[in-house]
């Protein structure tokens, strides 16, 4: 599979397109239904974070989702030109405490890490943010 990209407006009604785009690619690469569901959810969470935290729901902005085949894996990169958002600066939540306090939101990053094998954030030249998500086909890695 050759690398392919989807540009979407920073709007929540485009999340469905993001999910369908990566699901089709994951299926092509031989992932099963369970993993396809996890990949689509992780990408939804990453895009939702960009829409909310990088662009503050400004629907005039764009984000790009690029999918490519890695070595026995799918690699997805989500880039935006919005405000810098680095979830590494957030403390990892203790889920039991978190739930006890009934906090709303902020679950997306935690979920992405549970769903994918690798989650990385970096700042690219030109003030772009990038989230890189990787999932391996081989179950030994999951």
């Amino acid at each position: 599979m050759r690398a392919r990209s989807l540009n979407i407006e920073s709007r929540t009604d485009r999340l469905v397109d993001a999910r369908e785009f990566v699901s089709a690619a994951a299926q092509e690469l031989g992932f099963g239904d369970d993993d396809i569901g996890k990949i689509a959810l992780a990408v939804d969470e990453a895009c939702t974070n960009v829409i909310k935290h990088a662009y503050h729901f400004d629907g005039q902005q764009y984000l790009t989702i690029t999918v490519e085949a890695g070595k026995n894996s799918i690699e997805i990169r989500i880039t935006d030109s919005g405000e810098r958002f680095d979830p590494r600066e957030l403390p990892a939540p203790d889920m039991k405490e978190y739930l006890k306090k009934f906090r709303k939101g902020g679950l997306g990053v935690y979920l992405m890490k549970k769903l994918m094998d690798e989650v990385e954030y970096q700042l690219l030249p030109g003030k772009k943010n990038e989230v890189r998500l990787v999932k391996y086909l081989d179950t030994r890695h999951s």
Binding site: T48, F102, K104, G108
Partner: peptide, 16 residues
């Protein structure tokens, strides 16, 4: 058919 953390957040917002 599908739920993301935004959906889970709704339950958290009202349970208390």
């Amino acid at each position: 058919s599908y739920i993301s953390s935004a959906g889970l957040g709704v339950f958290m917002a009202f349970i208390e």
